[in-house]
C-alpha cells in the first residue's frame, strides 16, 4: 500500500513537472504543421464544396501558431508608433487577411511532399529558429520558422522561405509606402487589397 503511495506520488510529480514546461519550439512548429497536413489530407474534406470548412479549420491552427501582432510590429518597426492603437488593430487585422488570401490557396496545392523538421537553433531563452524543408521531386525548399516565447508558448513571428524573410520583405514594402504616405493611406491600400477578387 505504502509502496503504491510512493510510486503514485512520483508519477504525479513527473506528470505535473512536465505539464509545467511548454513544449519546445521545434515540437510546437512541427505539431502545428502536422495538424495542417492532417486537415489537408482529411478524406472528408476532399471535395471542393468543403473548401470553406477546410479554411475554417486551418484558420484555427494558424491563429494558434502565429503571433500576428508581433508579425505586424516587426514589419512596421518604427512606423508602428505613427499608428494610433485603433489603426494598429485594423492594420493587424487587414494584414492578416492579405496574408491569408495570398497563402491559404497556396497551401491547398500541397500534394504529399515530404516535410522535414531537422534543426532547432536556440538564439536565446526566448528566441529560436526552426529549420525545415519541403522535399519535392525537383528540388528542396528550405523553410525556417522564427519563434518567440510569449506567456509560456512558442509562437511564430517570421517565416523564411528560400532565405527570404517575409517580415523583412514586407518591412521594405511598408517602409517604402510610408516614406511618402500616411498610416491612413496605407490602411486604405490594404483595405482595397482585401476587397479585391
Amino acid at each position: 500500500m505504502k509502496k503504491w503511495f510512493t510510486i503514485g506520488s512520483v508519477l504525479i510529480f513527473f506528470v505535473l513537472a512536465f505539464s509545467c514546461h511548454a513544449a519546445g519550439p521545434l515540437a510546437t512548429a512541427e505539431t502545428a504543421v502536422g495538424k495542417v497536413i492532417d486537415v489537408l489530407r482529411d478524406p472528408q474534406l476532399k471535395s471542393p464544396a468543403s473548401k470553406e470548412a477546410k479554411k475554417d479549420k486551418l484558420r484555427i491552427i494558424y491563429k494558434d501558431m502565429f503571433d500576428e501582432i508581433e508579425f505586424s510590429r516587426r514589419t512596421l518597426t518604427r512606423n508602428w508608433n505613427k499608428f494610433t492603437p485603433d489603426q494598429r488593430r485594423e492594420f493587424v487585422d487587414l494584414f492578416e487577411q492579405v496574408l491569408e488570401k495570398a497563402y491559404l490557396d497556396k497551401i491547398f496545392d500541397y500534394s504529399d511532399e515530404k516535410i522535414e523538421f531537422y534543426k532547432e537553433n536556440m538564439v536565446s531563452d526566448k528566441q529560436a529558429e526552426i529549420l525545415s524543408k519541403i522535399v519535392t521531386s525537383s528540388k528542396e525548399i528550405p523553410i525556417f520558422y522564427r519563434m518567440i516565447l510569449k506567456d509560456g508558448k512558442w509562437k511564430v513571428y517570421d517565416v523564411v522561405v528560400e532565405n527570404v524573410s517575409l517580415v523583412q520583405n514586407y518591412r521594405t514594402q511598408f517602409n517604402d509606402i510610408l516614406a511618402s504616405s500616411t498610416p491612413e493611406q496605407l490602411l486604405e491600400i490594404l483595405r482595397k487589397r482585401v476587397k479585391e477578387h
Binding site: 492579405v98 496574408l99 488570401k101 495570398a102 497563402y103 528560400e162 532565405n163 527570404v164 524573410s165 523583412q168 520583405n169 514586407y170 521594405t172 514594402q173 511598408f174 517604402d176 509606402i177 491600400i189 490594404l190 487589397r193
Partner: peptide, 17 residues
C-alpha cells in the same frame, strides 16, 4: 499575389536571397 508593391517585394527578395 502576396505583395503590396510587387516591384519592391521582388527587389527585396532578390537582395535577401
Amino acid at each position: 499575389a502576396a505583395a503590396i508593391d510587387p516591384y519592391i517585394a521582388m527587389r527585396d527578395a532578390y537582395i535577401q536571397y
